[in-house]
Design a binder for these strands. Sequence first.
DNA 1: AAGTGGTCTAGACCACCCG
DNA 2: GGGTGGTCTAGACCACTTT
Lengths: 235, 235
Amino acid sequence: MTKHQQVKKNIQQWIDERQLGETDKCLPTENELCEMFHGSRMTIRKAVDELVQEGTLYRIRGKGTFVRSRNHILQSLQKLTSFSEDMKERGMVPSSKILLCERIAASKEIAEHLQIEAGEEIVLLRRIRLADNEPMAVESAYINVKLSDDAINDLTSGSLYGYMREHLHIFPKWAKQSIGICKLSEWEAQLLGNSDLQYALFTNRQTFDTNKNVVEYVEAKYRGDRYKYHTELYL
Amino acid sequence: MTKHQQVKKNIQQWIDERQLGETDKCLPTENELCEMFHGSRMTIRKAVDELVQEGTLYRIRGKGTFVRSRNHILQSLQKLTSFSEDMKERGMVPSSKILLCERIAASKEIAEHLQIEAGEEIVLLRRIRLADNEPMAVESAYINVKLSDDAINDLTSGSLYGYMREHLHIFPKWAKQSIGICKLSEWEAQLLGNSDLQYALFTNRQTFDTNKNVVEYVEAKYRGDRYKYHTELYL
DNA sequence: AAGTGGTCTAGACCACCCG
DNA sequence: GGGTGGTCTAGACCACTTT
């Protein structure tokens, strides 16, 4: 392992162990890091550069290098994987209503998506997603993480990632997603507030942590008459 | 402008002027680049690093630095913005059938998406997209680029980006996309080979060049019973 | 004025590829 | 063995922010 990789790993551990997640914290200066790791400035900068690239840190010239708040990490995942951020950008207030939240045994199909054995215990969280108190989607999250009863009783998408990071040291890093259309059952159409709806925009997502485990599998059906999915693509 | 930015720009120009797009070409060695630009190795490497990051170049230790073939650039755009790459990955053969290809005056709505004035002349390319010779989507591309008659007569999505790069020095760099569902007209359902289809997966996309001009606006309606859109998301 | 990150230099040693 | 990219060093000057 090269020196800048070691430095990067050390900084990352320091960030993770630090339990202060609310406000952004300042890193030691680059010269201090040079002394701490007995490395030249270019080497230390290479390590920090990568963490900046990955969004973990950010720099302000003349001031210092800072750890991005947990909040931002969460937002960037939500920005990439959900519609909530989209709603906010359109000036709507997102909320959710829990339909179901309990431990279940994984069915064969769900187990496949979570890359575990059928029958293993997981947590199912089924919610209605609303924008300005109007139903927009019905979402089922299958969570492959050992959660305490307290955590289950106080579960929102927001606090889930936070809980995983802070208590379980699990770090969601990337996701596979597909988008298509599906038929709606009459029951689902009613949940979405319009029993005439026949089709919905369907999304599913596997979220992976740094160790390539699937931490959750989420399926959602969105009202096709109200919502579109937006992305930006770079070359 | 910093030195490594100048070097990067110079290398980029050299790549663009070079008309050999078929096979990958080798760049001068890093030491030669140092002499050419009167810079130190670290500075030259910073310039090359960025081009590698952006996918323009790639390095092989012990051999040299290479320009990625145009083909790859095209693929990476298609991978991000279309379903064709997806079809290939599933072992299907993508093709397309041109329904319409002509100069038209931009309607008010299309002009808005292209960020031009209504009535300006653009090119409309309407195609059926097929996988293993089965219709999968109907796609309309509104192209905001001055194309020669020859170029219009020989237009495929593949050659469009190539033509823009090589003859017009226009470089598509990023795109905004949205995905939703839409109703299909009976005529469209027939084009897709199943007149019973009522809903389709709808996508639209604005493609921007390096100067933030919209070079094309594309709408497509995909068979919801056959296709899903796949993405991978990173934090 | 002092301290921060942003950039650059001119060397050096290493691992890898090829003839 | 000679050339390539991969890494690292110990300085230096600059632009910017804060005191």
